[in-house]
Computed example of a mutant assay.
Amino acid sequence: MKFGSVEDPTAVDFTLPPTHPDTLTLLDKHKKKKRDLEVYVGCAKWNKQDLKGFYPRGTKDELVYYATQFNSIELNGTFYNSPDKAQVETWKGKTPADFKFFPKVPQSISHYGRLLNVDEKMTAFCDAIALFEEKLGVSFLQLHDNFKPKDFDRLATFIKKFAKLTPLAVEVRNEEWFADESVRQKLWTLLESQEAANVLVDTAGRRDMLHMRLTTPTAFIRYVGANHPTDKKRLDDWVTRIQEWYDAGLQSLYFFVHQNVELESPLLSAYFIEQLNKALGLDVRGPSEKLF
């Protein structure tokens, strides 16, 4: 994933910002005395060419093998081609009972349609991914870099319609969403009212997207490594932060690893799972063999 990449990662301060105060307030509201943390960790795709070296020689079906190694996938493929019902049922049938898909809203809706006059496409997408049934995680909407706060009402209308059909997470990218406090608060109030998760993006060149403001008791995190030795230290810091959020009331964690060169994504995902399991006493499923 090239978004937010930089030429020299050593020049970036990767320190995680403090947790937003409203995040702690929200988590405290949802805190339960006895609870298990729901955790799904994976990569963005299962394509063999991108994840070169991950698949054993002779692997015939990449999704089948991938799903034995991780418990989820950030389904980026649906961004480029909205799946039909038969495709969804095929994917579902190739994965074990504990596996979940997190499909991305098609670009025909988010980028080309820019959320206007897309009801028919939105309904077709939601009807298709509904067939994942118990294997459907959260669908996420990623807006174009040039989709700005001036179109807030358009975004609000879409979210209110979509959130009634299927669970949703939202990622805004344009800098104007983060530059003004009133704009930020308006967006976060909308997401919280619709129970839509506010996506956090940890990428080298866009530290403003680490707003640390959760709008549901779910943390949906898209982590972009830099193919650099700093990547593991950054993941260690996330383990510490997740521990803090869990103690505060976090109920679910969806954590998806990207890389500028994707072949290292399974390695970092496996490393994160191992460290998270150790720190929180969890048993999140990861690769059967050590990859790192």
Rank of each mutant, 00 (worst) to 15 (best):
K121Y: 03
M122Q: 14
M122A: 14
T123S: 10
C126R: 01
F132G: 08
G137V: 12
L141C: 01
L141R: 00
L141Q: 01
H144I: 04
P149L: 04
A156L: 13
T157S: 14
I159F: 00
I159K: 01
I159G: 03
F162Y: 13
A163M: 04
P167E: 04
V170W: 14
V170A: 15
V172T: 11
W177R: 13
W188F: 15
W188L: 11
W188E: 11
T189Q: 12
E192F: 02
E192P: 00
E192K: 12
S193C: 06
A197P: 10
N198W: 07
V199H: 03
V201S: 10
D202S: 04
D202G: 06
A204V: 14
D208F: 10
H211I: 05
R213T: 13
R213L: 07
T215N: 06
T215S: 11
A219Q: 01
A219I: 08
R222V: 11
G225A: 12
T230K: 00
K232C: 12
R234F: 09
R234T: 09
D237L: 10
V239S: 10
R241M: 14
Q243F: 00
W245I: 02
W245M: 13
D247N: 07
Q251G: 15
S252V: 04
Q259N: 13
N260V: 15
S265W: 06
